[in-house]
């Protein structure tokens, strides 16, 4: 793990939504930190609060959302305390965001070129012609051929992958230091996915970006992450380096998640996680995953587990790490796979 200086620190962040049926506690005390030049992945299933967390960082929560507690520290500023105007200066300039669905995130009735120059012209440092040239250069940089010609086209004339490249170009237009990718490849074909991921990695090297990558796809995590945060029911349940998480998953949810991913050796039925994620209108007490965990102990239902230290880089919030807890076996599939991975060395 790189021990760079921290650029973005989220501390004990809680976000709730006021809805007609009650208060939905989407994010419950999430803390993580992003170091300069690293990529962290936040992994979790739908509804675990990943997207809400990054929307909070970007300050684009819908009006029904309330930040209950916590701080987001970026370069000494607490982002949760910024006014809308101050936030407008952070967005795009300091932190860029790539959305999940490139098909709907571009304005369908505006030329691609204008959507990029619009971002470039915000700082008022460029003339329109300079902005145009810079935008064409950007389009080339994200791997769009004939950028001059493409500049004059509308989003519907682009394929999904190409649109995502345009979205990336827009996100990077003002040279942000932090790039947040909210499931950027979910809506794309697998082959296009790989190309976009490579592009993001390449741009990260060139521009010294620090990346927060949101995904539920562990294959993508393996491809991208320096460090991994596993999120469940609005909480971080385990975090560590990619090796820590893939080779020594400790939290039962992380184990179940890994076990449910098929690989070349998978035979018979695919392992699945029984049950459904908790309803965040009534957040669970104790360990949120306990009802779906066949090894759950009494205390898992009653009291929330603290973060147990496994190594300097690896922490997990599960009572199974308590000294007096019984040994819980790793799922067979997983044990077998980890053995193979360790034998195969870096070939993960």
């Amino acid at each position: 793990m790189k021990t760079g200086e921290s650029i973005l620190t989220v501390d004990n962040l809680s976000v709730s939504f006021r809805t007609y049926s009650g208060i939905v506690k989407a994010v419950r005390g999430v803390s993580f930190e992003l170091n300069k030049g690293e990529t962290i992945c936040i992994v979790g299933e739908s509804g675990s609060g990943k997207s809400v967390t990054v929307k909070t960082i970007m300050g684009i929560l819908p009006p029904s959302a309330v930040i209950e507690s916590g701080t987001i520290n970026y370069k000494g500023m607490d982002l949760t305390k910024l006014t809308e105007e101050e936030y407008a200066r952070i967005r795009g300039k300091e932190i860029g965001l790539i959305f999940q669905d490139p098909l709907s995130s571009l304005n369908p009735l505006m030329k691609i070129g204008r959507q990029i120059t619009e971002a470039l012209l915000i700082d008022k440092e460029m003339s329109k012609r300079e902005a145009r040239e810079a935008a064409i250069e950007l389009l080339g940089a994200v791997g769009i051929r004939d950028p001059e010609q493409r500049f004059e086209q509308y989003p519907f004339q682009f394929s999904g992958g190409m649109r995502q490249r345009v979205v990336i170009a827009i996100a990077l237009a003002r040279n942000p230091e932090v790039l947040i990718c909210d499931e950027p490849t979910t809506a794309l074909d697998v082959t296009v996915q790989a190309r976009i991921l490579n592009l993001i990695n390449e741009l990260k090297q060139k521009r010294q970006l620090s990346i927060i990558f949101i995904t539920h796809d562990l294959g993508v995590v393996a491809h991208m992450a320096d460090r991994v945060y596993v999120m469940y029911a609005g909480k971080i349940v385990e975090y560590g380096t990619a090796e820590d998480i893939f080779l020594e998953p400790a939290h039962p949810y992380a184990r179940a998640l890994l076990a449910s991913v098929p690989d070349m050796e998978t035979e018979g039925r695919l392992a699945s996680i029984p049950g459904a994620p908790p309803n965040m209108l009534h957040p669970p007490t104790g360990d949120g995953f306990a009802p779906r965990n066949k090894y759950a102990m009494q205390i898992d239902f009653e009291e929330e587990p603290p973060m147990f230290r496994i190594s300097d880089t690896h922490y997990a919030a599960t009572w199974s790490l308590h000294p007096s807890a019984p040994e819980i076996p790793m799922p067979d599939v997983l044990r077998e796979r980890i053995r193979r991975m360790k034998e195969g060395g870096a070939n993960r």
């Binding site: 952070i90 967005r91 300039k93 619009e118």
Partner: peptide, 12 residues
């Protein structure tokens, strides 16, 4: 969604 993108560009 494109309004969110427009705002993440830094437009007010």
């Amino acid at each position: 969604e494109y309004m969110l993108l427009a705002r993440t560009k830094g437009l007010t």
